[in-house]
């Protein structure tokens, strides 16, 4: 169990030497390189607005006089990034979602609305799959809870021995 970040010394730091070495090497190279002066941006132009124009392809609005040359428009890229973000969000949800017994675990289940229809529709299969029905067994009546725990104990869906309990629950 990793808890509080703590700098451990000793052999774990050995790979860190690589990072430091890389920095030293790159710094050496950079300091040995003469870049010359920067071109800079014209004084008269608001860079932020120019960025916006470029990003949304508002070519007409871009300033012309003494403007920054060669700014392409990035509408397509912007759109693609939007899609990627969206996909990442969906992916995060999919990854974070917890399923138990083929049903997503709801963080704050509304007991009265959810439980009954879900039970009548999928209750039997859920039990038959062998997953544990812990959330439902809390919400339902005694006989159902009984059946659910029994099935769990019986293992993979072999709930014939407790058939009457289940039928009662379905009815």
């Amino acid at each position: 169990m990793t808890t509080k970040p703590r700098l451990r010394v000793g052999r774990v730091l050995l790979p860190g030497v690589l990072a430091v070495g890389l920095f030293g090497l790159m710094a050496l190279i950079v300091l040995n390189t003469s870049f010359g002066g920067s071109q800079g941006f014209p004084e008269s132009i608001a860079i932020t607005s120019e960025l916006g124009y470029a990003m949304f392809q508002l070519d007409e609005l871009q300033s012309t006089a003494g403007s920054i040359p060669n700014t392409e428009s990035f509408l397509a890229a912007f759109f693609l990034i939007a899609v990627v973000l969206d996909a990442a969000l969906d992916g995060a949800i999919v990854l974070a979602k917890r399923e138990e017994g083929g049903k997503p675990v709801v963080a704050l289940p509304s007991q009265r609305d959810d439980a009954e229809p879900a039970r009548s529709a999928t209750g039997r299969e859920t039990v038959a799959d062998g997953g544990s029905d812990s959330t439902e067994s809390v919400t339902t009546t005694g006989s159902d809870a009984d059946s659910a725990t029994d099935s769990t104990a019986a293992g993979n869906g072999n709930d014939d021995n407790d058939g009457d309990g289940n039928t009662g629950g379905d009815a």
């Binding site: 800079g40 941006f41 120019e50 960025l51 470029a54 990003m55 920054i68 700014t71 392409e72």
Partner: peptide, 11 residues
């Protein structure tokens, strides 16, 4: 971007 005077890098 500043060095080249081009906004693309910023975008």
């Amino acid at each position: 971007a500043f060095y080249h005077g081009n906004l693309t890098g910023q975008v």
